[in-house]
Each structure stands twice: as C-alpha cells, then as structure tokens.
Computed example of a mutant assay.
Amino acid sequence: MTTEPAAVEYDGAGILDRVQATVQRYCILPNRHAVTAVTLFIAYTHAASVFDYAPRLVLSSPEKRSGKTRCLEIIGHLSHRPLWTANASTAALYRSLARPRTLLLDEADTVFGTRHKAEQNEDLRGLLNAGFQRGTPVIRYDASAKTVMELHTFAPVVLAAIGRLPDTVTDRAVNIAMRRRKPGEHVEPFRVTRDVEPLQALAYELDCWITDNHETLKHARPLLPVYDRAADLWEPLVAVADLASGRWPERARHAATGLTADAATADADHSPSHELLLDTRAVLEQFEGDFIPTEALISRLTRIPDSRWQDEGLTGRRLAILLRPYGITVGRANNRMRDRGYHHRDFRDAFARYLHTPEPTPGPGPAMRPQPADTTTQPPDQQEHV
C-alpha cells in the first residue's frame, strides 16, 4: 500500500519577510515602498510564466557608487533562472528565452545613454519593450535557413543605470531611485564564496512556494489602486502579496500607489506638456471666471515658485503648441473679442484623462490562498552568464 506524501504548507508571508531581510542586509533602498517592491519583484520572477505581463525593475541613480550593482546582484541570486547579460549579444539573448528567465542588465546607461548609443542598440531596446507582454515575439529572417523565425522575448528584466533610461523602458518598469549611503548607514559585505549558498537556498524555498501556487496566481485578479499601464506592472506583484497574506497585501498596495505617484512626478519633470497641465490646473483653481486671457495665464505660470517657466520663458505661441496635443486651443472671450485666451471648460477633458486620481481597477478582491499541495519543484537552475 502506497502512502501519499504529506502536503507541504508554506508560510508565504514568512518567506517574503526573509527575502526582505536578506535584501536589506546587503542593500540600502530609499524607502519602505522600494523595499516592498524589490521583495515582491523577486518573488514574482518565480511565477512569471503564469502572468500576461513581465514588469521591469529599474534601479537608477544620479551618480555611481549608489548600490545599484550590489542590489542587482542580490536580486539575481534570489530570482528565477537569472541570466546576466553583460556583453551579451542581442541574438544570444533572444535564443535564451524559450522559457522565461530573469534578465539582469548592469550599466544600462552605456546602452541607452546617448542618442547614438540608443540607435546602436535598437534591437536590445526592441527586446526589452516587446518582452513586457506575453505573445509579442520578434520576427527575424534566417537567411541561411531561408525561413522566418519567431523569437521569444517575454521575461522579467532588472536594469541598473546612472541617469534616466528611455521613456519606453521606464514606462514599463517599477522605478527605484537609488542613493549613495550616508555615514552611519551600514550594510554587510557580500562575498560570493560565502554568501551565495544561503541565498540560493532561500530562492529554492521561494520557488517551491510560488510554484505550488501557480494555478492560484494564474487566475488571480487582485483589486488594484492604480490603473492602465501601472496596473499591468503591479498586478503580478500584488497577486503575490495577496497570496502571502499577512501585512503584505496592504504594503503592496501602498507601494503601488507611492511609486506610481513618484513616477508621475518624474514624468512631469521630464515632459513640459504634462508639467504645463499640472501648473495650469493649479492656476485655474485660484482663478475666478471661465475665461483666462493668454497673458494672464502666462503671468501666473511664470510666478509659480521653481517652475520651469521662470527659467525657460513662456510665450503665447509656445503655450498654444504645448496645449494643442491635448485638444486645447486658444479662443476668444464672448464679451471681449480682442482678448485671446482659454476657456476653463476646454481643460476639463485633459485634466480628467491625464491628471485624475485613479480609481481602483475592478476585480473580485485579493487572491484566495489555496490548500497546500505536494511539492515536486526541483531546485532552481544555477545562474548562467551569457
């Protein structure tokens, strides 16, 4: 008579707690939202095969020696089938993604840092962009075989860079702004010969727990506090948090809200048009009446403390050019035909679409934790370098 092996019950919240503690042992992250995001991203890589989107994780800083490479290294040792991509050809990467891997790209600024470099690495950029969503292979023609090939691109990606990466990359990423350690902030030194084995043991336990719950994660539809592209990014991470339960569901949603707001602020700083919408809304909230003359709007915009309009200057023509893509055009007041300006009502649609506070994405709520099942997962593959 055969005896069924005993089911293994995992403490998902406890496993995530230990992943977080391990990350914080070796890395200084900027805030609690960043700690939560990195922890959940590591766990998510072990379940990437069941989700439709593969979020990117971008570690950026204004200067070197800000802990990006060390954080990338720790993430790699804890992630699913890590693939270090330093000096790898794009062709080699394409052929390594028959099954999802966790791609790790250090010094990504050397790939995308200038227009010339970006043009030289357009194939790699295409891989990173296409691999965000399942079912978007890259099509290539093999001249030697005289055939068209579909190459897999779907994979989680971690990038470390000095400065800002292209918008097409950061828009698909959870972005963490790393900072140099202050005196008094201490981390443990990391040594491969001494410290890798405990990390791999933790990665194996994480992989067993996640793999045992693939079906639950595959059908999870967590309630999200963000929308559109941000919801695509955060759905896998929040689903993992809901599976773990405990304090993780709440922490995941706070991190999603906080880091998405940070990204929106960074986008506003990067995009003059978006910053103009934000500043115009602030002006119109203090302005009485439905019509504001162009000169009055410019005057108020340039008086906003620390605004770019003080430094760069703003003319009526530039104002019109920046607002036109949002469907906002210059007009005249009904009772003073000489005054050219803008009706308050013309901004409402743009404000609602681009500046509104997001409502939670509909869903049935947190993923339910399933009954434990037998664990047959093998240890994760050793890290490979291409």
Rank of each mutant, 00 (worst) to 15 (best):
G327R: 13
A173V: 07
E9Q: 08
R99L: 10
H152Q: 13
L278S: 12
N175A: 15
L301N: 02
N175P: 10
G14P: 07
V38D: 03
L127S: 04
L83Q: 07
W248S: 00
T315L: 06
P183L: 10
G289F: 04
A37M: 05
E9F: 05
S96M: 10
R25K: 13
T260L: 05
E275N: 13
V174W: 09
A143P: 09
A333C: 07
W309R: 03
M178G: 05
T376M: 11
R194E: 15
A263V: 11
V50S: 01
E4F: 14
V386L: 15
P5R: 07
G365Q: 06
H344C: 06
A220L: 01
A296F: 00
D212S: 15
D167I: 11
P360K: 02
T168R: 11
A161I: 00
V226Y: 00
L93F: 01
V169W: 01
A231H: 03
H214Q: 10
S49W: 08
S273D: 14
T361G: 08
E185W: 04
L297Q: 01
L206H: 08
M337P: 15
L151I: 02
L165V: 02
Q120F: 13
K117Q: 15
Q371K: 10
R56M: 12
A7Y: 11
L297S: 06
Y10E: 01
Q310W: 15
R338G: 15
R221A: 11
Y326V: 05
H274W: 11
E288I: 11
D11Y: 13
T69G: 09
T69L: 00
T3M: 14
R308P: 09
L323P: 06
A161T: 08
H254G: 14
D228P: 04
G313K: 00
A43D: 01
P55H: 09
T102C: 07
L323E: 05
R345E: 14
V38M: 02
I15M: 10
E73Y: 10
Y354C: 00
P225H: 00
E63S: 13
R340H: 13
E185T: 06
G246Q: 01
V50W: 05
L284H: 05
Q20K: 11
Q120E: 11
T361I: 07
P293H: 03
S66N: 00
L59M: 09
A143V: 13
L128D: 03
A266L: 10
Y53V: 08
A282I: 04
E295W: 09
Q286S: 09
A54W: 10
A244K: 02
L124N: 02
V226A: 03
F51Q: 08
G365I: 05
Y141Q: 06
S61L: 12
V238H: 01
L104S: 02
R134P: 09
Q378L: 15
I74W: 06
Y10R: 00
G12V: 05
D262R: 12
T257H: 15
T110M: 14
Y354V: 00
D339P: 07
K64H: 11
W209D: 03
H77C: 07
I176T: 09
T170V: 11
A263W: 15
L284A: 00
G289I: 04
A108E: 09
L322W: 12
R125Y: 07
A239T: 04
Y326K: 08
I210S: 03
F291C: 08
T153H: 07
P5K: 12
T329L: 14
F41Y: 07
Q378R: 14
A373Q: 14
G135Q: 09
A261P: 02
